[in-house]
Design a protein around this nucleic acid. Structure first.
Lengths: 250, 250
DNA sequence: CCAAAAGTGTTGAAGTTACACCCATGC
DNA sequence: GCATGGGTGTAACTTCAACACTTTTGG
């Protein structure tokens, strides 16, 4: 992989990857979208999921990591496959067709995409736009109403998969900084499940799992009682799950 | 779709679908595999999942239904996507390369596959081999140790997805005949989860869901106390789940 | 009458839900 | 001293796990 010099002609014109990048700013879930900077007459400049064609000899997972880095500068993150999307009508918006003409050698090729979702610590990097992404921006999930191609549909499926996954694997920590408070974790779960969770019950439940380490360290500079800081305890998590435990309930 | 006359040249050389068809014979889970009837010198004649290239203008889900019917004669069944598999080394077995040469126009093309799993009532049809499938056979899941391409890996993932899915949606009924007994359902769940479930607890739990209709009809001709027959109650299931209920536990 | 699977209830432990007040800090 | 979010316990209820015997049929 490393050091390959790949040409545009090594691209597989029929297959792409698209990434739904979730972030959490302690208030809401956000999704990283790119702005293709189209200046179009009558059609809308819709945002898109970061995604692109894969190379002929490239693994799908690898392609997802690569594309993500190329378009946004993000690397080394948690990725999970959502599935394959191959509706022949994925490209039925005028603005999408025009855009493809401007960046692809074979703009009319039928493209099947493998979608991924990933969870990132929103502060670990400033998303930088690269390549054809004129801007890369965090957009609140709740405000997204329309996207390029079939990306809105992909987003809905990704959201659903995330909800299911977090019930059987505590992947939420990927969205939080190394050190976090129970309230932040609580808020995160509420945002993902899109419903309120009782504070005391949540705390009891999560603490019973014994996968948090209390850092014996407090928040500083907050205008209220400072909160304990915790970190995810990877070792205890391994112990817990090595016998097939997968009930993270909620 | 109907009436299209499609030529071999309309095939998309880079994309295929593969189907993991699960069946249940009241004793164990079986998987429908095809035998490509290779007569090879030193390499094994491995069985494969039914699958084939898709057409250029064909939806993935549709392609899965079509390929399945073409290779096995099965139609109108429950299908669920497993995901996209695109490891460039999927074809690294000598026997697979030779076989592709014999059936494909572009045997060396890199192929990304969308895998599906499906649940069928094993007695609803006799699988018939068609096309390049020389035989289509039900093989016990527990006896499958090696398959063509990356099909064994696909099978493992499909099995895992099925286990997860049946916890949140009672899809098991697709594997049983219209009329079935609680013992058959019980055995089915044990086979899927690969672990014993307490008989009384299972019955209580499933009956509390209120998605079974007691047909007030008994098994006949069995050399033991005949069992009540039940059918799946679709209406009650809709009522149960319309408010988001998805705890079919186990 | 024997073999085979069907069918049934109880108890103790664990988990779930709902709910209200005091605490520590910055300003 | 006030506003803000942090942190805690209990009681009623529901669910879960474990467990053994009687029933009905065919042969």
């Amino acid at each position: 992989m490393v050091g390959n010099t790949r040409k545009k002609t090594d691209l597989n014109p029929n297959n792409s990857v698209d990434c739904v990048i979730f972030g959490f700013d302690f208030e809401q879930i956000k999704v990283l979208l790119i702005d293709r900077g189209q200046n179009l007459g009558n059609s809308k400049n819709l945002r898109a999921l970061p995604g692109n064609l894969i190379y002929e000899e490239e693994d799908l997972d690898e392609a997802a990591y690569r594309v993500l880095e190329e378009l946004t500068g993000i690397k080394d993150i948690y990725l999970e496959q959502v599935g394959a999307f191959g509706n022949p009508n994925r490209v039925n918006k005028e603005s999408d067709r025009e855009w493809l003409k401007s960046i692809r050698d074979e703009p009319n090729a039928r493209v099947i995409t493998a979608a991924y979702y990933s969870l990132v610590k929103i502060d670990d990097f400033v998303p930088r736009a690269h390549s054809f992404a004129k801007k890369a921006e965090w957009i609140p999930l709740s405000e997204i109403e329309e996207l390029a191609f079939d990306h809105f549909e992909i987003l809905q499926v990704a959201k659903e998969k995330l909800k299911q996954k977090i019930k059987i694997q505590p992947i939420g920590f990927n969205l939080l900084p190394e050190k976090f408070t129970l309230s932040q974790l609580h808020k995160l779960y509420e945002c993902i499940f899109e419903k309120p969770l009782d504070k005391r019950n949540f705390r009891r439940k999560i603490q019973k799992l014994n996968i948090l380490t209390n850092l014996k360290e407090k928040q500083r500079g907050v205008p209220h009682k400072p909160s304990q800081l915790y970190k995810f305890n990877e070792e205890n998590y391994q112990l817990l799950t090595q016998n097939g435990y997968d009930n993270f309930g909620f």
